[in-house]
Computed example of a mutant assay.
Amino acid sequence: MKTISIINLKGGCGKTTTAAAMAEILVVRHGKRVILLDNDKQGNASRLYQKYNQSSRRGAPDMIRSRNISGNIMETGIEGLSLIPCNYYMEQAELEILTDPGTRQHDRYREALAQVEGGYDYCIIDNPPDIGMNVVNALSVSQEVIIPINLDNYSIDGLEMLVDQVTSIRRLNPDMELVGCLVTDYERSATSEAAEEWIREHPQFKVFTQHIRHSRQAKDATFYHRSVVAHSPRSGAALDYRRFVDEYLRRAGDGI
């Protein structure tokens, strides 16, 4: 099972949209079995599949606390796609971990996901915009990292720092690598073209050729609790995400 972390320290970059679109395309278009791990206490991926339960202690908070995946997986209604939900109990789970220095803290997801190693082709982790213990656990189990990025000054300024932070965690997980940065919510303008040219001139960012166009349908899809590829499969964003996944598979050597 290949585990991929979708991460950016800035909110509103399309992390959940990218994680869900990628998961569904791998399942529906490429016949893969995927488990989507919602690692964000806000539970946006859980809400997308109508599996958010603010009073439940199951899901990612229980998995990181117990190192056990049993009882923490839910089905999404899409055959081949499962979900590990999350909610604000993640804060409590992280606190428990940090106040228990006598146990290993960074490999809890690794132990839990190993229990379903043969059941899925991919695990895609939708991370929050921070580097908490849950994100350290996610990066410690991930073979690959994808960074969605908007072409604004705040995102670009923080990109190099984020890449450095991700790279620093390789001491816990030498097998992890940055597959690339994905430009999201793209709107053609002189400024965005200049920004895109700048990041593509820096090879350490490994920017994907495909970018994701700005799409009203992507925002509308969340109201209907659907991914953009399910809600509006003919939209520019959905088409771009399909092309992105094809490019990812070629880049990762997984074929298409």
Rank of each mutant, 00 (worst) to 15 (best):
V229G: 02
S70E: 15
R67Y: 10
F223S: 08
N53W: 06
R57G: 15
G253N: 10
I25P: 02
R58H: 11
H30A: 12
Y88M: 08
T18W: 01
T76K: 05
G59A: 14
V135G: 08
N153K: 15
S55P: 01
L48T: 07
V207G: 04
I212W: 00
Y88L: 10
L139Y: 14
R29M: 08
I78P: 03
Y122V: 02
G31E: 13
G43R: 01
I131S: 05
G59M: 10
E94Q: 05
H211D: 07
H231Y: 15
N72F: 03
I97N: 03
H106D: 15
G71C: 15
D38S: 06
I69H: 11
H225R: 09
S235R: 00
R216V: 15
H225M: 07
L249K: 08
A190G: 08
G71D: 14
T191M: 11
E193W: 01
I212G: 02
G255P: 07
E117W: 11
E111C: 08
D100L: 10
E187K: 07
N72M: 04
S232T: 06
G102D: 14
Q115L: 13
Q92P: 00
A238N: 01
P203H: 06
L151N: 08
M90Y: 04
D152Y: 04
V141P: 00
K206T: 11
E247T: 11
R234I: 03
A19F: 04
L239G: 09
M133T: 13
H202Y: 10
E117Q: 13
T76D: 06
I169S: 02
V245N: 03
L98Y: 09
P174R: 13
V135N: 11
Q143L: 11
S215G: 06
R58C: 06
L113Y: 05
P61Y: 12
I97A: 04
A20G: 09
T16I: 10
I7V: 14
Y186I: 01
A218N: 01
R216Y: 04
L113M: 11
V135C: 07
T222A: 03
A238T: 01
G180D: 02
S46R: 02
I124C: 05
Q204M: 13
A19D: 11
